[in-house]
Design a protein around this nucleic acid. Structure first.
Lengths: 189, 189
DNA sequence: CCGTAAATGTACCGATCTGTACTTTTTCGT
DNA sequence: ACGAAAAAGTACAGATCGGTACATTTACGG
């Protein structure tokens, strides 16, 4: 139960980085918006980068928990769970606070593949892919890895178009594409 | 023929912004890397933002010219041209200097939809979509708009996974998905 | 209620940020 | 070769950057 303050910092910093970007958010702004003193911040995290990494870890946990739970709630069969990815995305895109994928943005600001922030973002995508792959296997796909990667591509593309598209419903488009892919890759009707 | 210097500045600035990011690239770095004096820069562009917008305009022109030309060169029929998108992507991803989509990165750093840099990035995607849609129509798609948006989603997703995926060939995965979609949406075999 | 750990407030460091002022040098058409 | 325009050089303003020092205040378990 200790570390409430540290958790509060990470939670609030995550919000601010998500809304404002990483380079564009200074430590002084974090002090102003979180109400937590700079001294405390640097007691918990030695550098801004460490704070960003902690925020990304929390984001990874939150996002995967949310998506996987929503897939389970919205779909009964493995096949339905895969389609439910895009229903969940639609809910997300509709939120007022939706601002795109935090990890795409992180990798855009920290481009070097060796950079911890970049590789942690890549790890998030790897974890998503792993889960998708196991569900594709449950659904009876002949090549679960291939199918999972195609679905992940649809998911990432939908997020990009939700940010940069104008008005059109990217989740719905991606869902239609996913249904076509599943109909072609999965046995049964 | 005048403005060679201005064009040189935009061209070099584009490279640096692409490699280094927008906020992470200061005007002093641009001076050092381009060899062009700060005085000249601010004579041609009143602010850094104007220079970024000029660089993005050049990027949009270069990228669309390259992709549409490559689609024409690699595909004979409209259907083949659509598939060729992903062969072109594969070439791009293999380049040593590949660093993802400049417009995804721009929208990640300038998130406000009202911001000129963001809306110019969205315009780039709109122009891609328009072209894809006209080729989908030529290919005989019943709903060319729907199909074009699905293909654009695959293209954007492939770029994201080329940046954040590990080793796997995102262009090939997206191409397989596109072939499935076209087989389902287009008349003929 | 006391002692200790945690958090705060304030002031600061050197570096870097975008942008400007002003002078000198280079370029280039005529 | 001359004159105007363009480019460069230098120095700087004012704000903000990430990060630190240090003294003070708050919170809390025994």
């Amino acid at each position: 139960m200790r570390q409430t303050k540290r958790d509060e910092l990470v939670r609030k910093a995550l919000d601010i980085f998500y809304r404002n970007g990483f380079h564009a958010t200074g430590m002084d702004m974090l002090v102003a918006e979180t109400g937590i003193s700079k001294t405390s911040m640097y007691k918990h995290f030695r550098t801004k980068e460490e704070l960003i990494l902690a925020a990304l870890r929390l984001r990874d946990e939150n996002f995967r928990n949310w998506l996987f739970r929503r897939m389970d709630e919205l779909g009964n069969t493995p096949r339905e769970k895969l389609i439910a990815i895009f229903d969940a995305l639609e809910e997300w895109f509709a939120l007022r606070e939706f601002r795109g994928c935090m990890f795409i943005k992180a990798s855009a600001e920290y481009q070097d593949r060796e950079h911890p922030i970049h590789s942690q973002s890549a790890e998030h995508k790897r974890l998503l892919l792993e889960h998708f792959k196991s569900i594709c296997a449950q659904a009876g796909a002949a090549a679960p890895g291939d199918l999972a990667r195609q679905i992940l591509i649809l998911k990432e593309g939908a997020i990009v178009m939700a940010v940069l598209g104008q008005g059109c419903d990217a989740a719905r488009d991606a869902k239609l594409a996913a249904q076509t892919l599943l109909a072609s890759a999965l046995p049964g009707n």
